[in-house]
C-alpha cells in the first residue's frame, strides 16, 4: 500500500524538483525583476500571507467563481434538459451554444467591462458564466443522450412513477457526466475569474496579479501564480477526486 503510494507520486515529486533546480539555476544570473529566484518568491509568498492579502483576495475570487459557476451549472442543466426534450428547441438553440463557445474569452471581457464597468463583481461573474456554461451544457447533454432507453422502458413497464424514474434512473445515470462537467467546468471558471479580474476588476486574485505586474513586483507575480496553481490542484485532486470515487462505486472494479 505504502509502496504503491510512493510509486504513484515519486515521479511527480521528481519532476517538480527538477523544475525547481532549473528555476534556481536560471535565476542566479538574472535580474530579480526578470526572473526572481525561489527564495525571493517564497519571501513574497510569506508577505502575501502576513498582510492578509491572500485570504481576502482568495475569498473574493472564490465567491465570484461560485456565483458565476453555480449559475452556469443551473443554466447548463436546464439547457441540456430542454434541448434533449425537444428537437425543435435543439435545432434552434444548439448553434447559439456553439457561438458562445467559439467566441474568445477576451471579447466577453471587453464587452463585460463596457457593460458593467470595472469596480463591480459583475464583470468576472459574467465571464465565468459565459465560459463555463457550454462546458457544463455539453457534458450533461451528452450524458442525457447516452441514457439507456431500454432501462427507461423497463421502468415504465414495471409501473414506476415519473418521480421514481428521475430519482433512480436519470440522476444516477447522469451523475458521472455531472461530476465530470463540474470538474472541467470548475477549471474553466477559476481561470476565467482570474482573467476577468486581471483585466476588469479592482479586487480579487486576478487584480492582485495585475497590480504586481504593473508595479514590477515580479516575485509577487510568481507567488500569486503558485497560489493559484496550488488551489486548483487541491480542488482537482482532493475534492473532485473524492467526488468521482464516490460516484463510480457501482462500476466494476
Amino acid at each position: 500500500m505504502k509502496r504503491s503510494i510512493i510509486k504513484q507520486y515519486l515521479p511527480a515529486v521528481f519532476s517538480f524538483f527538477l523544475i525547481y533546480l532549473i528555476w534556481k539555476t536560471a535565476a542566479v544570473n538574472m535580474h530579480p525583476l526578470i526572473l526572481p529566484g525561489p527564495e525571493k518568491t517564497f519571501q513574497a509568498l510569506r508577505e502575501i500571507w502576513r498582510t492578509g492579502e491572500l485570504l481576502s483576495n482568495i475569498s473574493i475570487t472564490l465567491k465570484r467563481t461560485m456565483i458565476g459557476y453555480g449559475s452556469s451549472v443551473v443554466a447548463g442543466i436546464l439547457f441540456a434538459l430542454l434541448l434533449n426534450k425537444s428537437s425543435l428547441i435543439n435545432r434552434a438553440l444548439r448553434p447559439l451554444i456553439t457561438v458562445i463557445q467559439a467566441t474568445p474569452p477576451v471579447v466577453w471581457v471587453a464587452l463585460a467591462v463596457t457593460w458593467f464597468g470595472i469596480a463591480d463583481d459583475l464583470t468576472p461573474i459574467f465571464l465565468i458564466f459565459v465560459v463555463s456554461l457550454p462546458v457544463i451544457f455539453i457534458n450533461i447533454y451528452q450524458g442525457l443522450s447516452g441514457l439507456d432507453s431500454e432501462l427507461l422502458e423497463m421502468a415504465i413497464l414495471y409501473q414506476s412513477s415519473e418521480w421514481k424514474i428521475v430519482k433512480d434512473i436519470y440522476l444516477p445515470a447522469l451523475l458521472p457526466a455531472f461530476v465530470s462537467a463540474l470538474s472541467i467546468g470548475f477549471a474553466f471558471a477559476w481561470k476565467a475569474s482570474v482573467f476577468a479580474e486581471f483585466i476588469g476588476s479592482s479586487s480579487g486574485v486576478g487584480f492582485a496579479l495585475s497590480m504586481a505586474n504593473n508595479n514590477l513586483q515580479t516575485a509577487k507575480l510568481f507567488a500569486w501564480t503558485i497560489i493559484l496553481i496550488i488551489f486548483m490542484l487541491l480542488v482537482e485532486y482532493v475534492f473532485l477526486a473524492w467526488l468521482q470515487k464516490r460516484v463510480g462505486r457501482w462500476k466494476d472494479e
Binding site: E153, S160, D168
Partner: peptide, 25 residues
Amino acid sequence: SFVFQEPRLLPWKTVSENLRFVQDN
C-alpha cells in the same frame, strides 16, 4: 412482468435493490 433478451438491470443498484426497485411499485 417482463423478462428481456438482455438483462435490463440498474447498474447502480445492488442485486437486492434491483428487486426492490420493482417491488416498491
